[in-house]
Design a protein around this nucleic acid. Structure first.
Lengths: 153, 153
DNA sequence: CGGGTATCTGCAACAGAGTTGCAGGTACCA
DNA sequence: TGGTACCTGCAACTCTGTTGCAGATACCCG
């Protein structure tokens, strides 16, 4: 099961699973199947996923509910993933994509609640009240996604 | 306790309570003490308030938990208030301030979870994927408020 | 100013999402 | 190839918000 050892540089032929495992070890934790599967899933998802959606997507490989929460918490804590509350007040998770940590754009669908990550230009940093510390800017767009706007109205 | 009756026009001397009652009646509903108190509170609050914070603020005049939820739902439905899920995935409510409906800026504190409404310039409308409908833009700032950044680190 | 009624309120019970404690399992270091 | 610190799964719990229903009341109308 274990392939030839791969060096630290990001080799082009490295599988997504191996890449996920390496990211996890580099963060200083064990590359358990649970973590690898979840990170791999997040990295391949086009939208931010809810806990429930992740459970569904894992199918037969599904983890215990609590374990999934803990894996997600850990990913967020180490910065490998982002967490956001959606319109319906449930958390959604997305893989952190390396550099674009600090400025981000999301589209939240009022119909299905999904969150889409956009590559929109980061807005300029605004002025804040005295004493406030800024760590992250996000442009938050609300409306209806193509599916909800077109299909079922 | 009841002062002289005041006419319908927005008189400068009109109390905040009377103004709230008038807004509620104009929306086509009964100006019950519950609604008046809550709307008045939201209109005077500097930040978006959670259900719990509202309960606390009302003190002795507190309503039933469920009634408060229903009052808030109604305020949101009629457009007199906005609802937003905060960092900790609890809803926060703020009074709608007339015109500035569509573009808004919030600062969410990662420390205490509070949400502050800012008067930042509305960001320019970005390009969206085909078929997406935009209804609202919001600039979402994350970090620590003066209190959390200064006081307890 | 008082009565009738649709609208509100409060209580109780429930549902969804996330958290905590603890016993047992396992990835990884040596 | 062990040993051990770190993970996982189970059970029980908390917090936030929702639904159903019976009783109360703001407001319209006379």
């Amino acid at each position: 099961m274990k392939p030839a050892i791969i060096r630290n540089g990001e080799q082009p032929g490295e599988s997504e699973t191996e890449r996920a495992a390496r990211l996890i070890r580099r963060a200083g934790a064990r590359a358990t199947p649970a973590r690898v599967r979840v990170l791999r899933l997040l990295r391949s998802a086009p939208t931010a996923l809810s806990h429930h959606e992740i459970e569904q997507s894992l199918g037969d490989l599904a983890l215990d509910r609590v374990t999934l929460y803990r894996v997600l918490d850990w990913l967020v804590a180490t910065g490998l993933a982002h967490r956001n509350a959606d319109t319906r007040r449930t958390f959604r998770f997305s893989a952190a994509s390396g550099s674009e940590h600090s400025a981000h754009s999301h589209f939240r669908c009022d119909g299905c609640g999904r969150v889409f990550c956009l590559d929109a230009a980061p807005p300029p940093p605004p002025r804040l009240p005295e004493g406030f510390l800024l760590s992250r800017i996000e442009l938050d767009l609300r409306g209806r996604c193509a599916q909800c706007a077109g299909g079922a109205q």
